[in-house]
């Protein structure tokens, strides 16, 4: 039977499929990190709250989501949510997987934000509060703008990591890069798509990593 057509031949013939897959990957990662950031923000505020109960809730949330495999979380979201919450019955399968991705991402993002806020010198808060600035304004106008320097690059790195994580969404037949393997396997193309997929992941993460490095450099200049 031999090796069959070359990688280049497969790519030239089926590139629209890979392109669509790559776009799906970027889309899922972006949604996961985007909504994950909003949710992660809330979780990080809980973890920084004065009330011990809120801190504990946040800590459990983060521990569970970071301490269990994303694939397991996806399965639970996919099979358990529709049974447990009948209102969620009509949601698309894409939504279930995205819920898992968003929650998983939010756990990592909340730790990034918490770390960023804690990295701002306590003297900044003391100075603002001693002037009579409210706790809210101190957070929004003094602490967060300084925390963002540390948060933005870490957030971008989380996006890069998420690009690789979304490959698991293919397990649920969602159209992203890894899913293209299934489409082409139907045409008896087994090994070539794998190398093409790996190559595309590598290009995406390398380009974005380079971008993050530039971002870090520019943020450092203003110090």
């Amino acid at each position: 039977m031999g090796l069959g057509p070359s990688i280049i031949d497969v790519f030239l013939q089926y590139w629209p499929i890979f392109l669509k897959g790559a776009i799906g990957t970027l889309k899922f990662s972006f949604i996961a990190v985007g909504f994950g950031s909003i949710l992660g923000c809330l979780v990080s505020f809980l973890s920084l709250a004065k009330m011990k109960l809120l801190q504990t809730i946040a800590r459990i949330y983060v521990t569970v989501l970071r301490g269990t495999p994303l694939l397991v979380q996806m399965y639970i979201a996919y099979f358990f949510l529709p049974i447990a919450f009948p209102v969620m019955n009509n949601l698309s399968k894409e939504t279930y997987v995205l819920i898992a991705l968003i929650m998983n991402s939010s756990a990592y993002v909340s730790e990034i934000i918490r770390g960023g806020i804690n990295s701002v010198d306590a003297g900044q808060t003391e100075a603002a509060r001693s002037l009579g600035m409210s706790a809210r304004n101190t957070m929004i106008r003094i602490v967060l703008p300084q925390a963002i320097k540390n948060i933005l690059p870490a957030l971008a790195n989380e996006y890069i990591a998420m690009i690789k994580e979304t490959s698991m969404a293919g397990t649920f037949m969602l159209y992203e890069l890894m899913y293209t393997r299934v489409l082409l396997a139907n045409k008896f193309l087994i090994w070539q798509p794998l190398f093409i997929i790996a190559g595309i992941y590598l290009i995406m993460t390398t380009v974005l990593t380079y971008g993050v490095r530039q971002l870090e450099r520019r943020l450092a200049v203003s110090d």
């Binding site: 900044q124 002037l131 600035m133 106008r141 110090d223």
Partner: peptide, 26 residues
């Protein structure tokens, strides 16, 4: 008013904004 040993100037704001931010906000 309070003045600290390590100044605690807001590094992300220019000199003028360091002074005006709290009167304007609060």
């Amino acid at each position: 008013g309070m003045v600290f040993q390590l100044f605690n100037i807001f590094p992300h704001l220019n000199v003028l904004d360091n002074i005006t931010i709290t009167p304007i906000l609060e």
